[in-house]
Design a protein around this nucleic acid. Structure first.
Length: 565
RNA sequence: UGGGAUGUAGUGUAAUGGUAACACUGCAGAUUCUGGUUCUGCCUUUGGGGGUUCGAAUCCCUCCAUCCCAGCCA
């Protein structure tokens, strides 16, 4: 009865296509095959999570498989470091390609053979046009191109030239192998696209074996065909390439015909996904690296403390369609909070301390209270917190002259110290300049454990730590890297919108003793402060470092803002 | 101004000829030992104009807007 709640999510357009193909027997053996094909020329970012979830998710849902294929056809840009990070990121998301790990470079021999056949059939030729000339001959968006003077060489000459290209007899840029399609096509991608170019670059996998490398439009469809990909899913900007894709799949000798489908890439406001811009931030030390917790890279959000479950939930809520839009950052934060709320261990940490002295509490007495690890999780345990005469609470939790709506500590007012006692502010101790040194309070011994026998209520509950027991730790308060929804929209330069407060370091915040047990990978909530994690690079037992993953929703801050405070 | 695509609340996504909806955001309230969580309610929607039809977000025409394409990048 209650499991009827299973909300049947409506199918997205890709699922509809697949179900239709499956139903109509258009899928060999009824097993769909997808692929995630990143070029190893940088780190994966949040946008890639969408693609990963679509490709691996579809394969999972329909009982097919998803290949990981590293699209390594441009050795000038690609590095092994990137290959390793890509694999690590996919694994972190919880996907497994098993034995289906491929490289476009696996197919270099096959691709070469296909190119030879194309030449023999008169469907490809070696061109001597320079890059500039080729551009001229290509025409424009509104004008057709014209044929290269080298377009009608004999098959024999083409064969000889291509062979010599491969043997390294020509310098880079001097010759290309081009498909003979249609220089007047309204689709520029069909105006005799380049198939091979000369490049004297060391390849991470094939080393110096090759000095000619196949182009995307030639390599990608054929790789898909070789691997038996049924649904080749990519982003919208490749729509114009689909005719080229289909052209390559129709080359003689290619038995399997995959089909390309395009979806809208993921854009999120306040975030930048451009590899070029992210690289600039890294190179100019505006962030600490690709895995800086403020970076939109997968390694960045991982270090920030986002969970893979939250990210997957996020992309699933965004959905899949063909409309180019911008998703609200707040949806991502919602997903992160929703997930972390259920799993984060609660700890008390005072980030901006104000000293509290409980005047009527015995000087040397220490008692321990029980704190819930997670009130949202019945199966979670409890841990002990030391209480003593000298405590810290947040500065924010005390006001000498309270504003309207403030129900925390102020002179004469009573609040609860979470899990411990009710306290009332009695007097304020200041230095000669009027700065508050400490707030003297009294506690109600009858309120032990946070409740009183008479059942009286207090409006405020503060977190706290015992001054003599708390441990000091570094806390890094991360915020959005950019302060504008669309960085660079106003001035044309995204650097102008860099948020100067994207990182505030608190060198020595006070954390309850239990904090010492926190390990890399744990999800934490500092009660009333936000979600935190242990920094995977800089934290050590001697010097713990916590990263703020995200804040808690704060309706009081909103209210204050509205009152102009 | 060549070609390809896309227009549904503020944002994202459903509804494919039959009462326009779900989530996030925002707002209001209740609950709460986190001003968190949870719960309740509210706000705002089919780009414009024609047409077909008993009936149109959906089909047709037209206009408009936005995005992508002229790498020997992917």
């Amino acid at each position: 009865m209650e499991n009827e709640k299973n909300e049947a999510r409506p199918l997205n357009f890709l699922e509809k296509i697949i179900e239709d193909d499956l139903k109509n027997g258009r899928v060999p053996d009824g097993k769909i095959v997808t692929r995630f094909p990143p070029e190893p020329n940088g780190y994966l970012h949040i946008g890639h999570i969408k693609s990963i979830c679509i490709n691996f998710g579809l394969a999972e849902k329909y009982g097919g498989r998803c290949h990981l294929r590293l699209d390594d056809t441009n050795p000038a840009k690609e590095e092994t470091e990137y290959i390793d990070s890509i694999k690590e990121d996919i694994k972190w998301l919880g996907f497994d390609w098993g034995k289906y790990e491929f490289y476009a470079s696996d197919y270099y021999d096959k691709l070469y053979e296909i190119a030879i056949n194309l030449i023999k059939e008169g469907k490809a030729y070696v061109d001597e046009l320079s890059a500039e000339e080729m551009k001229e001959y290509r025409g424009s968006l509104t004008e057709p191109g014209k044929n290269s003077p080298w377009r009608d060489r004999s098959v024999e000459e083409n064969l000889r030239l291509f062979e010599e290209m491969k043997e390294g007899k020509y310098p880079e840029g001097s010759l290309t192998l081009r498909a003979k399609i249609d220089m007047a096509s309204p689709n520029i991608n069909m105006r005799d696209p380049a198939l091979y170019r000369i490049k004297y670059a060391h390849h991470p996998r094939t080393g110096d074996k090759w000095c000619i490398y196949p182009m995307y439009d030639f390599t990608h469809p054929i790789s898909d065909a070789i691997e038996g990909i049924t649904h080749s899913i990519c982003t919208l900007e490749f729509e114009d390439h689909r005719p080229a894709y289909d052209w390559a799949c129709s080359i003689d000798g290619i038995e399997h015909t995959p089909h390309q489908y395009e979806f809208a890439r993921l854009n999120i406001n306040y975030l930048l996904m451009s590899k070029r811009k992210l690289l600039y931030l890294v190179n100019n030390h505006l962030v600490s690296g690709w895995d800086d917790p403020r970076m939109p890279t997968i390694s960045g959000v991982r270090r920030r403390g986002y969970s893979p479950e939250a990210m997957k939930d996020f992309v699933s809520r965004v959905g899949v369609a063909k409309v180019e839009g911008v998703v609200d950052y707040s949806l991502m934060e919602f997903c992160v909070r929703e997930d972390l709320n259920k799993r984060a261990k609660r700890l008390m940490a005072v980030l901006d301390p104000l000293k509290i002295v409980i005047d009527n509490y015995p000087d040397d007495k220490v008692e321990y209270f029980e704190a819930e690890d997670n009130p949202e999780d019945e199966n979670s345990g409890k841990h002990k917190i030391a209480f003593s005469k000298n405590l810290y609470i947040e500065k924010e939790d005390f006001m000498e002259t309270p504003v309207k709506g403030y129900h925390r500590l102020y002179p004469g007012n009573e609040i609860r110290l979470k899990y411990a006692y009710y306290i009332k502010a009695e007097s304020v101790e200041k230095d000669e300049n009027g700065n508050i040194l400490a707030v003297h309070c009294t506690y109600d011994p009858e309120s032990r454990g946070g409740t009183t026998a008479d059942g009286r209520k207090v409006k405020g509950t503060s977190h706290w730590v015992s001054a003599d027991h708390a441990l000091a730790a570094e806390v890094r308060q991360y915020d959005k890297l950019f302060k504008a929804e669309c960085p660079g929209a106003a001035t044309g330069n995204y650097l102008d919108d860099l948020n100067p407060d994207s990182l505030k370091v608190i060198p020595a915040a006070y954390i309850e003793e239990e904090g010492a047990k926190a390990k890399v990978g744990d999800y934490l909530q500092f009660i009333r402060n936000g979600y935190y994690c242990v920094d995977m690079k800089d934290s050590s037992a001697e010097h713990m470092v916590f990263n703020r993953t995200c804040t808690l929703k704060d309706s009081w801050a909103k209210q204050k803002a509205k009152m102009g405070l």
